[in-house]
Amino acid sequence: MNARKSFYLVVVFWLLIFSGFIAYKEYTLQSGKEVLLKTEPVDPRDLFRGDYVTLRYEISALDLGHGQAEDTDYMNYKNNGRIYLALQLKEGYAVPKKIYKNPPDGELFIKGRAKGITYERPEGKASMPPVPKLRVEYGIESYFVPEGLGEEIERLRWENKRIDVLVAIDRFGNAAIKKILIDGNEFKY
């Protein structure tokens, strides 16, 4: 292969990567159903992409009991294994309905990866034994902001402002963040 062919190949290959990347995310944003998720943010920094807010959702720790999981044996949820969480809308927010190991038919669902089991006591019931919770990541755990603004979002959280995230979920369960809402209003910078 001569240099000219290499040049054309590189240009086409790079353009394919850029456009494929953009098209993949745009598909989710444009065709996906919008849902609101409740969060708990903190403010770290990425080496290449600067400040971001780490988002932990209510759906990041799932209860495997109470008929919420297709498979209730938490030993069967392998680390980094794929899970599909069916969602239902409750008071304007998307909340867990059922955990599946395969994409469910006819339901709104979000695709995630199991990240281990943690043991947590039910809120306000310190005397009860801790229950296993499945930790899940959905690929929407980071929200990038201009330098220094992460601290502002963190401050708002300490002021007990309600921070929600509007996400779009496509029919394959892929999710993408559309915007952050502070007390119901879009956070703009």
């Binding site: 190949l9 770290p44 080496l47 780490t54 929407i140 993408a176």
Partner: peptide, 30 residues
Amino acid sequence: FLIAQIYNINANESTLILIWILGALPLVYG
């Protein structure tokens, strides 16, 4: 990384580095 930032791809995602390597490899051999 700019595209990943715009679409809020999770921070410190290893796949981005892998794509960078794959994108640079044709230059190594070409």
